[in-house]
Design a protein around this nucleic acid. Structure first.
Length: 241
DNA sequence: CACCAGGCAAGTA
DNA sequence: TACTTGCATGGT
């Protein structure tokens, strides 16, 4: 199968996986890319915006997050200095549209405090850490779990780490690529063990998975028009219409 | 009206 | 360890 896009500018040849899982994952990627086109994620400009969005979007629709980020911009709060200064109750009011606003205000504060405590408020210093240390540090923040940490590492630090979310789990289990009880690291390993460690590829792939989840692989799936409806095996689809 | 959304941590046994 | 529950607004 021909790759319709060279994912990395550094690659002169499209990647051809040598494992069955790798081939199936690249098939999935090609189908999604052909259907949706390149997404060029993350839907935010700066590294700090990526980090803010990663926390605000926890179990929350992105359109609600956009309203909250818009409020933050209006109030001039998209900076580490302003975020570290603002009282947590005030911050909560500003991000209210994102839902869970009290706990998310606390989580944002925790992350910002971490950057000041450990990196003297130097965001670049944090993002330049070696990947394992960066991940370890982010996960030590109360309110930052695996998906939030990995989103920051992939989309802000631009390291090749595959981001897993509920859509990834739902799509792959419905297509019998993993079991229903697969963990975050089962899924992350599936992608990272069988695909080249290429940040632009992981970036596009996760973005396409989210789009597929939103549009087709919902709780009530819309398999009829899904770009993956011929991407077998589908022997775990007894709950699908 | 009911249901859902790009998680995570705290509580319970 | 293995479940369960709280957190909350805004769109369909």
């Amino acid at each position: 199968m021909k790759r319709s896009l060279h994912i990395s500018n550094l690659e002169s040849e499209p990647f051809t996986p040598h494992t069955l899982s790798g081939q199936r994952l690249m098939e999935m990627f090609d189908l999604l890319l052909a259907h949706f086109g390149p997404q060029n994620w993350w839907p935010a400009k700066t590294e700090l915006e990526v980090m803010i969005g990663a926390i605000l979007t926890q179990n929350t629709n992105w359109t609600n997050v956009e309203k909250a980020i818009s409020n933050l911009k209006k109030m001039g709060l998209v900076s580490l200095d302003s975020l570290v200064s603002i009282p947590i109750e005030d911050l909560a009011k500003v991000i209210r549209p994102a839902g869970y606003y009290n706990i998310k205000a606390k989580r944002l504060k925790n992350l910002v405090d971490f950057i000041f405590d450990r990196y003297d408020g130097d965001l670049e210093g944090l993002l330049q850490e070696e990947t394992d240390l960066l991940r370890e540090g982010l996960l030590s923040v109360n309110g930052v779990g695996p998906e939030t940490a990995d989103s920051i590492i992939l989309y802000a630090a631009k390291r090749p780490l595959f981001v897993v979310d509920t859509y990834t789990h739902r799509i792959l289990s419905r297509h019998a690529m993993v079991g229903e009880d697969a963990t975050y690291y089962d899924l992350q390993g599936l992608f990272m063990d069988h695909l080249p460690e290429d940040a632009p590829l992981f970036n596009e792939f996760h973005a396409l998975i989210v789009l597929t989840g939103k549009n087709f692989c919902r709780k009530k799936p819309l398999c009829e028009d899904c770009p993956l409806n011929q991407w077998g095996p589908q022997d775990n689809m007894n709950d699908m219409i």
